[in-house]
Design a protein around this nucleic acid. Structure first.
Length: 665
RNA sequence: GCCUGGGUAGCUCAGUCGGUAGAGCAGCGCACUCGUAAUGCGCAGGUCAGGAGUUCGAAUCUCCUCUCAGGCUCCA
């Protein structure tokens, strides 16, 4: 029928529309609420502007602002508005790229005269953005050939470079490689962009500029340093507020803050950046983490080894670290008339020497060598961050030497072991990431890399977890799988790494004698489950917001006597706890009860026991459990309480787990 | 290493126009002896990150260094 087209909707229905009907008009015809929420449409799987006329027979769905895809569009469009605002406030500013990132967007600029943004500029830019939004400027798409594109952006070197990247698959360039698209908001502002965008700036408004930062053009530190502004944008004030609240929550859980408040560790300036000392409470947590890990490693068939912190340079020459990892190492110290000694950045060469200490038989394999190995890496000062990125750390490091035939089994076994252990520490949601050969920064043949990468991929798929690719992210000697864990507020952390290595056995000439009486080369699996003890502790602190499970709490029970007259009984209760294997202290410092309770609560102690006359008489305790909203229990028999807490320790639980209703904090 | 913003008592922070430093909490002492998240009073505590400069005089202005936060880059 001339003049009429038919389109398919997501629910399977079809609609007859006048030829030339746009996606926006379709949304309007379905319902005004949908039209109001619509930002773009998907036509045959491709996102288009609402202004686009629909082709006959297309499958169309409307993308709304409150969907993930919709927020991407909002953020992208908001980035354009920000660029326009910056161009208004800094005439002559060059603009580079403005992509969408997780929860927001950024845009990179080069300001005239080498000027920099400061935090004070953000409110001014926001105000200008609100003005632009109020002006209800349309986003109008145009397509140009390359020459016109270069012409339009004649005074924009970064845009020129993007356009010239045609054929290399740059994002902003049309798939055909011959067309560039632009979006014009007003005579004063046009941007190179693949789109799609919201119909008008009036559709935006729930945004906030977060911070300014320096960033290199194309991420290359040899190129121009640009000025970047980060922002976030959402479909509603409510969603924006929820996001900002989430950030506050993350701040509340910051392990650096909690580490100081709970007296766990510090970074004394006298020692140097990125080098922590652990205080008694933090030291206790470490000890508990390590003790349980050791126990599990024994059960899993690991052998324990130890190696020194420094070595002559020859070892790291042989391993290749000095060729590929020298930047990450502390400079050498010269001893014994010119011999250079290095602090170790990795444990693997030492474990290799253990393997090499005598001839090995196939009967010994797989050989799993484990060590809490302390390593030092000279990280660039700007990357240091609390305990998650330090210059001295202890890895729960092991190297598994095995035959090629054993490789698959060992990988699967190792991953099961990792996940099982992490679950015991309270992490339950995981996905895997596979990192492949780093271009130009790797040893070994492509063949070996291919085989190793495939083995890891196969193992990862067998685990039934989501797998994402990290192209080029492997270490210089081999590809790796890393286990990413999601914490209590949904953030992901890189935890364990499992790396497959054909190179180091070759460099060190490792061998074993097979059943055939011939010499064969073993392969190596490098694996660290915590990653580093320091980092893992940081993750646990943030995951639990400092309220660690009872088994990991440095102080599990605090006993508070109501008056001095109950001090002896309070000590007897603490002693009984100690006999039951619990860590307990008495706080009888003479303040009012409320103040003592408060102090114990702020220290996030799982069990606070208050004892008075009634308890002395009945051998009972008043029990105030962490995270319980209800009233504290009175007159609990001491033996019952000890049974309760020891059972909780045994199952690695939290007092909050059994709370009728968990209280905040 | 680079960009932006910081560094004042153990912690959190105030300190005006350049005129030699202040609070709360924590600590210590005394009094209070109290049944579930802050008792009162008193005392002590600072080379204002470090160094140099400008000035009659610098926490305050300038420069350098160290260090912290957020980014870039990198990564456990």
């Amino acid at each position: 029928m001339p003049g009429v087209i038919s389109v398919g909707l997501p629910d399977g229905s079809t609609r007859e529309l006048a030829e030339g009907t746009t996606a926006g008009e379709l949304a309007q015809s379905i319902g005004s609420r949908l039209a109001k929420a619509a930002v773009v449409a998907t036509v045959d799987g491709r996102e288009v502007d609402l202004e686009s006329p629909l082709p006959d027979g297309a499958k169309v769905s409307i993308v709304t602002a409150d969907s993930e895809a919709g927020r991407v569009v909002l953020r992208h469009s908001t980035a354009h508005v920000m660029a326009q605002a910056v161009r208004r406030l800094w005439p002559g500013a060059k603009y580079a790229i403005g992509p969408v990132i997780e929860n927001g967007f950024y845009y990179d600029f080069e300001l005239p005269g080498g000027a920099h943004f400061s935090d004070d500029d953000l409110p001014r830019i926001e105000a200008e953005m609100r003005a632009i939004i109020k002006e209800d400027q349309p986003f109008v798409r145009h397509e140009h050939d390359l020459e016109d594109g270069l012409d339009i952006f004649a005074d924009q070197p970064f845009k020129q470079e993007i356009i010239q990247a045609v054929g290399t698959g740059a994002d902003e360039v049309d798939a055909a490689g011959t067309v560039v698209s632009t979006y014009r908001n007003s005579d004063a502002f046009i941007d190179l962009c693949r789109g799609p965008h919201v119909p008008s700036t009036a559709r935006l408004g729930h945004f906030k500029l977060m911070r300014v930062a320096g960033a290199y053009w194309r991420g290359d530190e040899k190129r121009e340093q640009l000025q970047r502004i980060y922002g976030t944008a959402w479909e509603s004030e409510k969603a924006l507020a929820a996001y900002l609240h989430q950030l506050e929550e993350a701040e509340r859980r910051d392990h650096r803050k909690l580490g100081a408040e709970l007296d766990l560790f510090s970074f004394p300036e006298e020692i140097g950046s990125g080098l922590a000392v652990f205080h008694p409470k933090g030291g206790t947590i470490r000890r508990l983490m390590e003790e349980y890990s050791r126990q599990r490693h024994v059960e899993a068939g690991y052998d324990f080894v130890n190696s020194p912190h420094i070595t002559k340079s020859a070892l790291f020459e042989e391993s290749g670290h000095l060729d590929w990892f020298a930047d990450g190492m502390y400079p050498p110290m010269e001893l014994d008339g010119g011999t250079q000694y290095y602090l170790k950045p990795m444990n693997c060469p030492f474990h290799i020497l253990v393997y090499k200490s005598h001839q090995r038989s196939y009967r010994e394999l797989p050989m799993r060598l484990f060590e809490f190995g302390t390593v030092y890496r000279y990280e660039k000062s700007g990357v240091l961050q609390g305990l998650t990125r330090v210059r001295g750390m202890t890895q729960d490091d092991a190297h598994i030497f095995c035959t090629r035939e054993q490789m698959d089994t060992e990988l699967v076994r190792t991953l099961h072991f990792v996940l099982d252990l992490l679950r015991d520490y309270g992490l339950n949601e995981f996905y895997l990431e596979l990192s492949t050969k780093p271009p130009g920064k790797a040893v070994g043949s492509d063949d070996d890399w291919e085989v190793a990468t495939e083995a890891l991929r196969k193992t990862a798929l067998e685990m039934g977890l989501d797998l994402v690719m990290d192209e080029g992210g492997g270490a210089f000697y081999g590809p790796k799988i890393s286990v990413q864990a999601r914490d209590a507020i949904g953030r992901t952390w890189q935890m364990s790494t499992v790396q497959l290595d054909f190179q180091l056995p070759q460099r060190f000439g490792l061998e074993y004698v097979g059943a055939d009486n011939a010499r064969h080369r073993p392969i190596m699996i490098h694996r660290a489950l915590f990653g580093s003890v320091e980092r893992f502790m940081a993750v646990l602190i943030e995951h639990y917001a400092g309220a660690l499970p009872t088994w990991l709490s440095p102080e599990q029970v605090r006993v508070i006597p109501v008056t001095d007259a109950h001090a002896a009984y309070a000590q007897a209760v603490a002693d009984a706890c100690a006999v039951a294997g619990l860590r307990a202290t008495v706080d009888g410092s003479g303040e009012k009860l409320g103040a003592l309770i408060r102090r114990a609560k702020l220290a996030k102690i799982p069990y606070v026991l208050v004892v008075g006359d009634q308890d002395v008489a009945a051998e009972s305790v008043g029990v105030n459990r962490r995270g319980w909203a209800g009233k504290p229990e009175h007159g609990v028999a001491l033996d019952d309480l000890l049974a309760e807490v020891t059972a909780e320790v045994a199952r690695k639980g939290l007092p909050e787990d059994r709370a009728p209703e968990a209280a905040p904090g």
